[in-house]
């Protein structure tokens, strides 16, 4: 069997894979390169400089972007934390709650925000806040983000929990730990990789959201995506490329963290 034909590889697939990665990265690389352009215009190349990064922090629009960044990050942190806590409780009830009637409807409700198209959810949320007389602003963004982040936090947590056999907490309870102690001291630490992944995913989803935020933000409150969108609508400027590159860097850092966490197996 030494001259066995290779049934796995197909000619051309390697080329398409490289093409795929090229397509995915080329626009991002171009923007990164141009963010270091010294020129006033986005078309001509005038040498390497950090002037647009400086412009983001001290330039004429810096106040707007700073406030938007504060809003974005505070909303993302609060919404992702709340969503992760809610998702952890829900996952415990779904994966460790036995079989019961409310289980399937609960799963349906949790996956609702990712099944409904984002624009529809945005419309529904706007109409709802309007009909109950909520003034649009920071709070409406925060509440909407918390709700739609739940399924994103939930999925990695559920996946993780399913991978942990219940013998661990049973062993603890055989040694007279209460159920609460078994959760706090055994199950929760074992679930940690899933919880961190869930949090990171929820955080990035909140930070990235444009459509829902744009509908529920109201006048005057901006997050980074809505501020960038407003600026791009008036024309592409080099400072937008500098902000984009920084956010790109942040995303890469977060994926890298989440990549290493996924390799972390603490059940052994």
């Amino acid at each position: 069997m030494s001259a066995k034909i290779d049934v796995k590889t197909y000619t051309g697939f390697r080329f398409i894979t490289l093409l795929c990665l090229f397509i995915l990265y080329a626009p991002l690389l171009v923007v990164t390169v141009y963010s270091f352009n010294a020129s006033e215009s986005i078309t001509t190349w005038d040498g390497v400089s950090l002037r647009w990064y400086t412009d983001v922090f001290v330039g004429p629009e810096s106040g707007k972007f700073q406030q938007a960044a504060i809003n974005s990050f505070s909303i993302a942190i609060i919404a992702a934390t709340t969503a992760t806590a809610i998702a952890t409780a829900a996952a415990t009830a779904i994966v460790r709650g036995g079989t019961y009637h409310l289980r399937a409807p609960s799963l349906g409700l949790i996956s609702l925000p990712i099944m409904v198209p984002e624009i529809v959810l945005a419309v529904a949320t706007l109409i709802f806040f309007n009909s109950i007389g909520f003034t649009r602003g920071y709070m409406t963004i925060l509440v909407a983000h918390t709700a739609f982040c739940i399924p994103f936090a939930y999925l990695p947590i559920q996946a993780r929990m399913q991978g942990i056999e219940d013998t661990y907490e049973h062993a603890a309870m055989d040694l007279y730990a209460t159920k609460a102690q078994a959760f706090r001291r055994i199950l929760f630490p074992l679930m940690m990789p899933g919880i961190i992944s869930g949090f990171l995913l929820a955080f990035i989803v909140s930070l990235d959201d444009f459509i829902i935020t744009n509908f529920v933000k109201g006048a005057g409150v901006e997050t980074l995506p809505t501020a960038i969108f407003g600026s791009v609508k008036q024309g592409l400027k080099p400072n937008i490329m500098a902000i984009s590159t920084m956010l790109l860097g942040l995303s890469i850092v977060m994926v890298t963290i989440s990549y290493f966490i996924s390799k972390w197996d603490n059940t052994k």
Binding site: I86, R96, L109, A144, F183
Partner: peptide, 30 residues
């Protein structure tokens, strides 16, 4: 697995409240 079967409704409550109030109800109002 049913380790936490007794408290399952309490554990589900927050997700039901938040998603019911801010996702399901809005879709109905729409």
């Amino acid at each position: 697995s049913d380790t936490y079967a007794k408290v399952r409704h309490w554990l589900l409550m927050p997700s039901w409240l938040v998603l019911g109030f801010f996702v399901f109800a809005p879709v109905c109002v729409m």
